[in-house]
Design a protein around this nucleic acid. Structure first.
Lengths: 346, 346
DNA sequence: CGCACAGCTTGGATCGATCAAGGGAGACGG
DNA sequence: CCGTCTCCCTTGATCGATCCAAGCTGTGCG
């Protein structure tokens, strides 16, 4: 009764199909389809019979056929940025793990890709959209002026951003972590430990994320009636930059603590302290951002602000589901709070 | 001439199809299909006409339809293991990046998934196979007794392993890095620096990878007429274990150098040295394995064996291509050489 | 008795690309 | 003038699930 008359002789020519299940259960294809997609339509005993047949055959609906018919792939696209060497940054990788898990629970899989031309924001996206290979995208690197987001908005592709839209006009759904709250907590923590001269080492002004994190620091200091002048530095996100900035600040402003926009920068600070014979956590306190493996494993440990990436992923997938289900799609955003992980450096 | 009579009035109902291109170019669907998949069959002028039409419409073949017909998805499945905290291990993440890139160059995308039940090796694989969602798998965690590999071999699913089959009977294609060669290079490097008592801290005996790496160390020492007795320790892959093992070895065997099976263990050694007031690289040398961000960023830097993951990914995809093209599939393996990255710790 | 209705079947079309034949025009030889 | 052989292109069927519109059967109820 299989779809291929030679099947019995030649052995199975592939995975079982709907028709095979129907034949085994003694029902029609339509009924099997209903059993899977609309079980309420079936009588209990029929449903059970069909399900038994599904189990014995090990039937799983053919993805391609279903995708073709329903015009949906249940795949979420994520463009992977190149792996950053000489950097503590593991945020993307941690996020990928979380996203995969959250997606699975929502019945999605994650499709990774990268653009053949990294400078072109649309590279890679375009082809996947037009070939209907993915239902939606998750965009992570919104901080670089966010060219992806505007491109995607223009081409009406469903997507959710991990990262706030820093351009006012943007209307897409997003999930982000409140960086300012994180650095504020870090700064408050340092103040509670008695520090009064708390320095900031962050990213260049062009980075909205960097400015956001910086705001948490300055806000907290001023809230305690302390000055921030001469205590801040804005540099590239490299260990070397952190190292140099710390040197300058130590010479010119004599801070007793540092809050950094990243663990990478904090690592540079630790290196500077080490060179001067200063002990982190005893002589000078240091706090990083991201709770990277480096922060966890550095001797003594680096106090760091940890982003709740698992929760971010869950929220992202949730919004994605709403977006694709055509329910409330308007530029709603969620801001999650990070928390401070205190280690030996503070 | 569109497939939908209301199309002109309602606007485009989706991406253009083969039929749309055919209509615009004034040829049949099949000719358009040939233009894309078998251009040699067309006359030059026709080919150009079709290509123009493709460009003006921005046509990309519908993935689902193609997959259904050709019974291939051009997707490679990769099961992601949970992100390991408190560990230097970034190998998987680096590999994922490389794999995505190598796959793209071969016309594949990477589908990430994770099993809902991590203890079941087949979890997740099964569904993807039966639904024909992926063409093949890349299996990375072959070191855990390799249950995936045997399951996949049994179910005749195409896959390539990153990691040697440590069970003799296995016949699948694989690509791996010669860990013994890496630790041998590390040990030789230490001997060249004048060390004579070089200790080993590795994984438990159950780990074939650990034993392989250990072999490089012991082989090199013995090759130089040096004894290994009392200089080796086998522990869990945690910082704490490395720390403890280093303590015991320092007390009982007085080594002047350590070779470790991972950066995680090496980090533990560094911590032990630090506690004793010993300076890594001056008093005692340490070499890790994996060239993780932690190795790169630790103060002074950790000398480490770096795996050529980019090359591994290229080889894996290459074998995958051969496997799926039904060309030479027999258990052929490739062993790539790692290289030592020397930093301050040695 | 007849009607409604739940529950299933039947047959077909559909998604969009590809496969396996089939057809027509021109060239060439007899 | 006709056969036949290429070359180039077209036609119809197909992949497997879903959707749609009837149609059929048995049960319950007025």
């Amino acid at each position: 009764m299989g779809r291929d008359p030679h099947r019995a002789a030649d052995g199975p020519s592939g995975p079982p199909t709907l028709a095979d299940v129907a034949a085994l259960a003694g029902v029609s294809r339509q009924t099997v389809s209903n059993a899977l997609n609309n079980p309420a339509l079936l009588r209990a005993d029929t449903l059970e019979r069909v399900r038994d047949a599904v189990d014995t055959l090990g039937y799983t609906p053919n993805r391609a056929a279903r995708n073709l018919r329903t015009k949906a792939s249940r795949l979420i696209g994520l463009r992977l940025t190149p792996f950053a060497e000489e950097t503590a940054n593991a945020t993307v990788d941690r996020f990928v793990h979380s996203l995969v898990q959250a997606s699975r629970e929502a019945g999605y899989h994650v499709l990774l890709f990268d653009g053949d031309d990294p400078s072109d924001p649309a590279s890679g996206y375009d082809e996947l959209v037009r070939s209907t290979a993915v239902d939606a995208f998750v965009v992570t690197d919104t901080f670089k002026g966010n060219p992806q987001a505007s491109y995607l908005e223009d081409s009406r592709v469903p997507f959710v951003a991990f990262g706030r839209p820093w351009t006012p006009a943007a209307l897409h759904p997003w999930v982000d972590v409140d960086g300012a709250a994180g650095t504020a907590e870090a700064t408050a923590h340092l103040l509670a430990r008695g520090h009064r001269r708390v320095a900031w080492i962050g990213w260049r002004k062009e980075s909205p994320i960097g400015e956001d994190r910086r705001a948490g620091w300055s806000r907290t200091l001023r809230g305690h009636g302390l000055s921030t002048s001469g205590l801040a530095s804005r540099v590239e996100d490299t260990v070397r930059s952190g190292h140099e900035a710390a040197g300058v600040l130590l010479d010119e402003a004599a801070p007793t603590a540092f809050v950094c926009a990243s663990d990478t920068l904090a690592t540079g600070v630790l290196r500077q302290l080490h060179e001067r014979g200063l002990v982190a956590g005893r002589d000078v306190a240091v706090v990083g951002f991201d709770d990277s493996p480096v922060a966890q494993l550095l001797p003594g440990g680096l106090t760091s602000v940890r982003q709740p990436l698992e929760e971010v992923a869950v929220q992202v997938v949730d919004r994605l589901g709403k977006l694709l289900g055509h329910r409330e799609t308007f530029g709603s955003g969620t801001l999650l709070a990070p928390h401070l992980v205190v280690r030996g450096s503070s």
